[in-house]
Simulated scan of single mutants.
Amino acid sequence: MDSAAVLALFDRQLRRDHHGEGPGDRVERVGDVVRLVASGGAGWCGVVWSDLNARNADAAIAEQVRYFTELGREFEWKHYSHDMPADLADRLLKAGFAPEEPEALMIAEIAGLPTEPRLPEGVRIVEVTDAAGVAQMVRAHDAAFGRPSPRLEQQLLRQVADRDASLVALVVLAGDDEPVCAARLELHKGTEFGSLWGGGTAPRWRGQGIYKATVAYRARIAAERGCRYLQVDASDDSRPILGRLGFHPLAVTTPFVYEP
């Protein structure tokens, strides 16, 4: 894989030409910044792309702070290690943003990935299509990550109710319908990419190949829907697994969050 070419394609298709993440979302292009404003009051808002320099970066940052503060919305500036200017992260810190844990942007060509999930006996993957499935999925997510996720739950309920074709939501059930893992695939219309999200497994079920199985399941669906690449923001826990499957680290991404 030509890493530089694929990273440039990712920047263009999923960042600069971003089309939104759900029904009703607004994508606004303001100068050298692309921002997403989620519909309702609970969805994700943030800056997904910028093309700044040392002369205009501070003014652009101040404008986004002003805009989202007037909306009364928390927002995220999704920063990538190759974004310009080189000191953009420092400028965000000085403007009052709080950094969250950095993750590795990893991308793979689907043609080189396994697409047949292998699960432990008595464990199965179920696609989520209704509110009951969302409830199971959120239980698994909260158990895996050790914290509640009300924003995710509201987003999933909205997408399921709207029958959002860009979302494939999965819950992994064990035994008597115990939710042990939750995973999502976002399909980006008009691009060559699918995005993997979630994939967290409850602690006592880790080390049994469940996360790998959800990657394979989602890779198969992405291929069927015409995607060429899969992208994931990988934590330190998932990065080694994804590397062994064929994903390549192309950048580091850090969420910088601003609360009005």
Rank of each mutant, 00 (worst) to 15 (best):
A8K: 11
R12P: 01
G20H: 10
D25F: 02
D25R: 06
D25Y: 06
R26W: 09
V27C: 06
R29I: 06
V30W: 13
V37C: 04
A38N: 04
S39Q: 14
A42C: 12
C45M: 08
V47A: 01
V48D: 09
D51E: 15
L52M: 09
L52E: 10
D58R: 15
E63T: 05
V65S: 07
Y67Q: 14
T69W: 03
E70G: 07
G72V: 04
E76Q: 08
W77R: 10
S81C: 05
H82D: 14
A86W: 05
L88T: 07
L88E: 09
R91G: 00
K94R: 15
P99L: 10
E100L: 11
P102I: 07
A108K: 11
E109K: 13
R118Q: 14
P120K: 06
R124L: 00
E127T: 11
V134Q: 01
Q136M: 13
Q136F: 09
M137Q: 14
A140S: 05
R147V: 13
R151F: 05
L156S: 01
R158C: 03
A161F: 07
D164T: 08
L167W: 15
L167Y: 14
L167A: 02
A169D: 02
L173T: 05
A174D: 10
D177H: 06
C181Y: 08
L187R: 11
H188Q: 14
G190R: 06
G194I: 05
G194D: 02
L196I: 06
W197P: 00
W205K: 03
Q208K: 13
R220M: 02
R220E: 10
A223Y: 02
R225F: 09
Y229W: 13
A234H: 07
S235W: 11
R239Q: 14
L242Q: 13
G243R: 11
L250F: 09
F256E: 03
V257H: 08
E259N: 10
